[in-house]
Computed example of a mutant assay.
Amino acid sequence: MMNKMLSGAVAAALTVSFVGEAGATEWNVSVWGKRRAFTEHVEKLAELVSEKTGGAFTINVSYGGLSKPKENLDGISIGAFEMAQFCAGYHADKNRAITVLELPFLGVNTLAEEVAVSNAVYAHPAAQQEMAQWNARLLMTSPMPQYNLVGTGAPRDELAEFEGMRVRATGGLGAAFSAVGGVPTSVPATEAYNAMESGVVDTVAFAQHAHLSFGTINKADWWTANLNPGTVNCPVVVNIDAYEALSDDERAALDSSVDEAIAHYLTNYGALLKKWDDVLAEKGVEKVMISDAVLEEFRAKVAGPISAKWVEDMTAQGLPGQELLDLVHATLKAARGS
C-alpha cells in the first residue's frame, strides 16, 4: 500500500494547513458534484462544529475543487485535505472490507438500516485497519436507498433484456448486472449524464438524488421502481494526523456532531423520496414495476453466488470475509428487532 504514513515534511505541512493564526482550526473537505441530498450531512457537520466551537473550528466543503472523486482517498493519505467523501466501488482494492456493504440483495430496506449496517462494519477492526493504511479514519456513512435504473427506449423489465445492456454501475451492483449478461462501466457520477447522452451506456444505476443531481433523469424514458438490487457505500473519512492534532474540545465537537448530521441527512432525504413520483410525472418518465418472478430470478442468479465469491476472495486476501458478511446480517436482524 502506498503512503502508509505521512513523511515528516508532509505531516508538518498538514499541521500548518489546519492550525491557523490565533489557534483557529480550519479543515477542507473534498466532495464532488454540487450540494445535494448526498452531501447534506457534511454541510450539517460543518455547521454544527462551527457552532459548538464558536467559529474556532471551521470546515470548508469543496465540490470538486480539491480532487477528482476517485482520488479523494489518495488525497487523504497524503494530507492534501483533512476530510473527504468517496465511494467504495470507485477503488474496491483500496477499501476491500467495506465493499461487503455493496454486495447485491443484502436485504437492507431503509436508510436507517443502511446507517446501522454501515456503522457496524466501520467499527470492525478489519475496516479500521485497512483505512489506517491510507491514513484515513472512518467518520460517518452517506446512506443511500436501493439503486434503480433509468434508461431510454423500451423498458427493460425482463431478465433477458439485461443481456448486453451497457449500464453505469459500480462495485457489487456492477457484478450483479454482469452476472445476468449486462456490461457494467464505473464512470464517476459526474460523467454519467455524458455517458448516457453519447450512448456509452444504455442505462444508469443511481439512487434518486443522483438521478436528479447529475441529470440522468432528464435523459430517461423509464425508471425501475422496485428492482432494488443493492446500493453503493460512500464513507466520509478524516485524515488521522489531522484528527489527532485536534484539541480535546475540537475533537469532541466533531465526534458529537456525527449523529445529528446523519439525522438531518435522513430527514432531508426522506422529503426527497416523498416527492419522487411527482418528479417522474413532471419529467414524463414511466415508472416500471418489475414482476416478482423476474425479481426472484435476478436474486437467485446473483445474491448467493456473488456473496460467496466475495467471501472467498476476501478470505484468500487475509480478511475476515464471512465474519463481515455475518455482521451485516446480524446487524440487520438486531435493527429490526428493536
Score class of each variant (00 low, 15 high):
residue 139 L to Q: 01
residue 153 G to D: 07
residue 81 F to P: 11
residue 167 V to M: 04
residue 108 V to I: 13
residue 168 R to D: 14
residue 162 F to A: 11
residue 165 M to G: 04
residue 62 S to K: 06
residue 76 I to F: 08
residue 174 G to R: 03
residue 54 G to K: 03
residue 158 E to R: 15
residue 85 Q to C: 13
residue 160 A to C: 12
residue 122 Y to V: 08
residue 76 I to Q: 12
residue 170 T to G: 06
residue 160 A to K: 15
residue 106 L to E: 03
residue 63 Y to I: 01
residue 176 A to S: 14
residue 117 V to H: 06
residue 154 A to F: 13
residue 153 G to T: 04
residue 116 A to S: 05
residue 100 V to H: 05
residue 172 G to Q: 03
residue 160 A to D: 15
residue 144 M to L: 15
residue 61 V to D: 08
residue 155 P to R: 00
residue 132 A to F: 05
residue 163 E to K: 06
residue 117 V to E: 02
residue 92 A to W: 03
residue 176 A to C: 14
residue 72 N to P: 08
residue 117 V to R: 04
residue 138 L to R: 02
residue 114 E to L: 00
residue 152 T to F: 07
residue 148 N to A: 02
residue 116 A to C: 04
residue 167 V to A: 07
residue 136 A to M: 00
residue 109 N to Y: 06
residue 84 A to N: 03
residue 152 T to L: 12
residue 91 H to K: 15
residue 120 A to P: 06
residue 139 L to V: 11
residue 157 D to M: 08
residue 58 T to W: 02
residue 112 A to I: 06
residue 152 T to R: 15
residue 143 P to M: 04
residue 55 G to S: 10
residue 148 N to L: 02
residue 112 A to G: 00
residue 61 V to Y: 07
residue 73 L to A: 07
residue 83 M to P: 03
residue 127 A to C: 07
residue 111 L to E: 02
residue 166 R to A: 13
residue 123 A to S: 09
residue 142 S to G: 03
residue 105 F to M: 13
residue 122 Y to E: 05
residue 114 E to T: 11
